[in-house]
Every structure is written in C-alpha cells, then in structure tokens.
Computed example of a mutant assay.
Amino acid sequence: MTEMFDKLSHDQQLNILLELARQATRHYDLPEGLEVDLLNLSENATYRVRAPDGRRWALRLHRAGYHSRQAIASELAWLNDLREKHVVVTPAPVPGKDGELIQTLRHPRMGEARNVVLSHWENGVEPSITQNLTGPFEVLGEVTARMHLHSRQWQRPVWFTRPIWNFETALGETNPHWGRWRDGMGVDAPLAALFGRTVAAIGKRLAAYGQPPDRFGLIHCDLRLANLLVDGPVVKVIDFDDCGFSWFMYDAATPVSFYEHDPQVPELLEAWKTGYRRVTPLARADEDEIPTFIMLRRILLLAWIGSHAETETAQAMGIAYTQGTAGLCDAYLAKYG
C-alpha cells in the first residue's frame, strides 16, 4: 500500500492527505462546517482548520516513519512545559475526543498509519529576510537563551526520546538524518571536492569543541524564519518537529537558514547574541563556533533539498542554493580550513 501511495502523482498524494486531514478533524470536539486548507508540505503536511465562527487550529499529519509516537509525545511534553513555564509562546496541542494528544489514522491507499496532532492557532506573522529583523533577532536571542536554560534544568520524562543531531547524523556518510549532502541538487565533482574539504574542516573543529553538557543538549534545532511568528513585541516559536539533542549554538545558525549568504546576516547574528546575553552569559568559545554551525547547517540543507526535491522550498532553492554555497565554503576554509 505504501508503495502504491509513493507511485501516485504529487497531486494525487495531496488529495489523499487532504482526505485524511478532514477525517482527522472528526476525532476532535470541533464544530461542523470546517474548512481544511494545506499550509505547508515538508517532512509533514500541515493544514489550517477554520470554523464558520472564525476560530482556527493547525493540524499536522506526521510523515510515516519519520518520528515514532513516543518521539512525538516527547516533543509535545517539552513544548508544553516551555509554554506552561512561560519560557516561550508555543502552540497548545488539543486533545482528541479520547483525551489523547496524538491521534492515529489510516487511509485505505496508505500502507502505514499516520500520527496526527491538532494545535490551537497562534496569531503572528512569519518574518521575512527582506525586512529589518534586528529587533526580532534580539528578542529571538532572549527566547533561545531561556529555552536553553530550561533545557539544562528540565527533568525529562523517563520515556523521553528525540533524535541526536551530531556531526555523523548531520553530515556523516553512514546514515545522515536528511540524506547525503553529496546527493544535493547540482553537486558536481568540483563542488563535491570543495564541500568535502569544508565538511572535513567542520568535523575537525567540532571534535575539538566537544559535546559536554554545557554545550550539547535538548534544543529546537530548526528556528528558521518559517518556524517563527512575530506578534507585536513577542516572538513565538512553532514546529518543534526536529527538536532533539545537539549543540546549543546550532540554534544560533538555524534562524538564517536558506539566507546564510545574505549581507545582513552578520548584523542579525550580533543582534541575536545581544539578546542571548541579556538572559545568560555567552562564552567566547561558544560565540567563536557559530560560523561553524552556520556552515554545517548550510551543507545539511543541501542534503535536505536533495532528499525533498518535491517540496516547494526545495524547488525554490534549487541548484542556485548549491552554487551559492561554494562562496561560503571558500570564505570558511580561508579562516578555519
């Protein structure tokens, strides 16, 4: 059945996912006459659910085989505690009619069941790189620091499980989470050689930097602009789907995802660090390694684009993103190679 679904056209798959999303709404205490519209298709399919009276929710159909039910429950446990402790504004999950936050549904044309989570809608606007983001990045730095302090102190449930994002699982050759960077769009032999030298330099620096508890722990892992909502002076954080164990300073790199080459990035990073320091000290060794995490993230996204070529984001980035990475690699190697 899964093979049958995978062989369907993109539009046919979207229709089946929409059918499943509409079916999922019936597992919650929601009003009649709902509108269900696709918001985003990436690892998961996310829908806006709108009632006739204007109330809205976000419904996520989890991709089959990406996260276990236990891993999703772990994600929800962390974001719920972050919200309840007033660390950061996050979407509040809605229990189903059976009281469970995670619903599991099947579709006759899918081989595997899909896990579903419904959350209350959060107001706000996704920031754009075309705007002046200095102020929001200062706030984001504060928010990220509070999340890191919470992560270090939080007593996780004994059953808690989330992915580990280290050098091997990001850029390694054996079984990287998002595929091999060598399979990125347009990675020819000269680029592969350049990227390979950069990856080796990243690995060497991170091996020296290490993974002690004050540098490596539970983080969001994907604070890119699409996962932030600016609501007046508040910066809200959504989509904890990739949260896991990694270097805390990796959270400094993800907000500039897909725009690492933009001229305003150095200014935005300074704003982020200013906000971070308002909450907790930022060690010089941590600050010095941020460029390494930006480079790691850039090459990791090459792998993601290559393994998610069907998504709008990957198609928008395309080969131009791969080619633009070369200049960043040259600059990085000149300083750290």
Rank of each mutant, 00 (worst) to 15 (best):
A226R: 13
P212W: 00
E267K: 10
P255W: 11
D239N: 10
F258P: 00
D262T: 07
R182F: 08
V256L: 14
F216M: 01
P233E: 09
V237L: 09
G172T: 07
N227K: 14
I219L: 12
G203V: 13
E173F: 02
A271T: 05
G179F: 02
F167S: 02
F258D: 01
C221A: 14
K204F: 04
G179D: 05
A271Q: 02
C243F: 02
K273I: 06
P213H: 01
E270A: 14
W178Y: 14
L223M: 12
F258A: 08
R180T: 12
G210C: 09
L228C: 07
L171G: 00
E173M: 05
R224T: 01
G217K: 05
Y209R: 11
N166F: 03
K236D: 05
C221G: 00
F258W: 13
I164K: 07
N166S: 09
W247V: 05
L268V: 06
L218V: 07
V158Y: 01
R224A: 03
R182N: 01
L225G: 02
T169W: 09
R197D: 15
A207H: 11
A193H: 06
T174F: 06
V199F: 03
L223K: 14
P263F: 02
W159Q: 15
F167Q: 10
P163A: 07
E173H: 06
W178G: 05
D214M: 01
D241E: 14
P213S: 01
L229A: 05
V234P: 03
F167V: 07
Q264P: 00
T198L: 13
P176K: 08
P266Y: 03
N175K: 08
P263D: 12
Q211A: 09
R162I: 08
P176D: 11
D241P: 08
D239S: 09
I202A: 03
D242A: 08
L194Y: 02
A253T: 15
A271N: 05
Q264F: 01
Y209I: 04
V237D: 09
G172S: 07
I238M: 10
V256Q: 11
D214G: 01
V158E: 11
